[in-house]
C-alpha cells in the first residue's frame, strides 16, 4: 500500500500531462512504515535523460538521484518510490520497467496519459531480495486529503 496526499497525487499526474507525448519521471520521498507501506511526503520531479526515445523510455540521471537522496537525507526522508508516465499506453508495468527496476521495497507509480490527459494511476511494489527473485506486486494507492480521508484505490478519472 502506498499513501500519498491528494496534492502530490495530482501533481505527479499533471507532470505526465505536461510532458506528453513524452514520459515524465520523478522520485517519491517519505518513509516506509511497518504495517502501513510507503508513505509519500514529497515528490521531486526529475528530468528524463532518454531524449532519444522519450515517448516510450525514461531514465533519471544518477547524478540527479544522488542530489535527491541528499535532499531526502536532509529532510529526514528516504527514497520510497518513483513515478513515471506511459503516454498512450496502459498504467501497467512493462518488461522494460521490470528489467530496469532495482529498488526493492520501493513503489513504482505509473500513470497512463491518453492523448495528453492523465487517466489511470497504479502503483507496483518491487518485492524480493535480489535480481533473481524480484517481482512487481500491485499495491493499493491511498490518496489522502488533509483530514485525512481514504479517497480512492485506483483513481482513474482525471
Amino acid at each position: 500500500m502506498i499513501h500519498i496526499s491528494e496534492e502530490d497525487f495530482q501533481a505527479l499526474r499533471a507532470h505526465g500531462e505536461e510532458t506528453y507525448p513524452h514520459e515524465c519521471c520523478g522520485v517519491l520521498l517519505g518513509k516506509s512504515e511497518a504495517g502501513v507501506g510507503n508513505r509519500v511526503s514529497l515528490i521531486v520531479r526529475a528530468g528524463n535523460t532518454r531524449t532519444d526515445s522519450a515517448h516510450n523510455r525514461y531514465n533519471i540521471a544518477p547524478q540527479e538521484l544522488v542530489k535527491v537522496q541528499r535532499q531526502a537525507r536532509g529532510l529526514g526522508f528516504d527514497i520510497v518510490g518513483f513515478y513515471h508516465s506511459h503516454p498512450d499506453h496502459p498504467a501497467q508495468w512493462s518488461q522494460t520497467d521490470f528489467a530496469e527496476a532495482h529498488w526493492m521495497g520501493c513503489s513504482y507509480v505509473i500513470t497512463s496519459v491518453d492523448k495528453g490527459k492523465a487517466e489511470l494511476t497504479n502503483s507496483f511494489l518491487l518485492t524480493g531480495t535480489s535480481e533473481e527473485n524480484k517481482a512487481f506486486q500491485n499495491e493499493e494507492v491511498v490518496v489522502e486529503t488533509p483530514q485525512p480521508e481514504l479517497i480512492s484505490k485506483e483513481r482513474g478519472e482525471a
Binding site: R57, N59, L65, V66, S94, E100
Partner: peptide, 15 residues
Amino acid sequence: LTIIPSIAGGCCCNL
C-alpha cells in the same frame, strides 16, 4: 561514497 542503483524504464518493449 554514494551508492545509487539506476532508475529507468518505459512503456513498451519496442523502440
